[in-house]
Design a binder for these strands. Structure first.
Lengths: 155, 155
DNA sequence: GATTTAGTTCATTTTGAATTGAACTCGACG
DNA sequence: CGTCGAGTTCAATTCAAAATGAACTAAATC
């Protein structure tokens, strides 16, 4: 049965991106299964705790990696994977990386070259520090510009 | 002294990318220091074990984030940060993500739709599985294409 | 309005990655 | 040669992130 192997691939992907393996397992299971699955199905088939599945589903939904579907006459929510790579990446960048980049910006802009003048700092050293601080701020801006482009590229 | 704050920013960046904080500390210290530093300087100033510094420097060198410089009449190696974002990102993608993507490709291409025919799998379910496997392989290819473009964009 | 089913929350536990540190290598220098 | 300084290696330890599971809420069902 190839299902386990698909799941293993997504676990590996998750880990390469620094995400918990449980996310890879859940998304992988949904990906390998033609029909949408309900919460309890996932718990059973992955033999994972309800807590992990609950949190995993919440995250996957928040980045738009899965979408909930309803079935008439069944009050459970079912889930199916979003298959578009573009959406996955865009969601990941939006939820995970962008907030971080914004925060780097705030912290970087708060840095003042004067703060580095402990003891005797030669003029050209001051100059170097100053340039590097500027560069750091430039990075932050550029990262913010590039990310949206990347997710377009993948779409 | 702003040095600690610069280091903190790089630690945060490292962690956002799923890298160990020690990498952020080492790179951050080099970034905040106008003059190149030697191995033992780093150990002392960060109060970090020789083991961590050794491994950290090796990794940073391997991705091209720092470069060694020699000083006449001193057998120690000194290190200074590479300031070009493009090189950092390119190195990171090359060393970290590309090998992973290659491996996903190998594993994805090994998947056969037939492996999923456990029990009764309806014709349209087979169809769905088949399409998804194809899509997975497409992803892998596309990721391999996009990464080089990204690092160009940043250069 | 009691009970069952579906899912959430969060304090505790587990686990695996990061870090340490002691033993080691390698070359320089007396 | 001996030993000193610079750096590496890797088994053991630490620690933070992830997973668990028991207690909980909310909504449907009888």
């Amino acid at each position: 049965m190839g299902e386990r192997e698909i799941i293993a691939i997504f676990v590996q992907m998750a880990q390469a991106l620094g995400a918990p393996r449980s996310l890879g397992e859940i998304y992988g299971l949904l990906y390998a299964t033609p029909q949408p699955l309900a919460f309890q199905d996932i718990v059973d088939r992955l033999d994972m705790s309800k807590g992990s599945v609950s949190q995993g589903l919440r995250f996957l939904r928040s980045v738009g990696a899965i979408k909930p579907v309803s079935r008439a006459g069944d009050r459970r929510e079912f889930f199916e994977p979003v298959l578009e790579l573009r959406q996955l990446v865009a969601g990941f960048l939006r939820e995970r990386l962008n907030p971080q980049i914004k925060e780097w910006g705030v912290r970087a802009r708060a840095l003042r070259p004067d703060d580095f003048s402990f003891g005797a700092l030669a003029a050209d050293d001051r100059e170097t520090v100053s340039k590097r601080l500027t560069k750091l701020k430039t990075w932050q801006k550029r990262a913010g510009t590039v990310l949206p482009v990347v997710s377009k590229l993948l779409g």
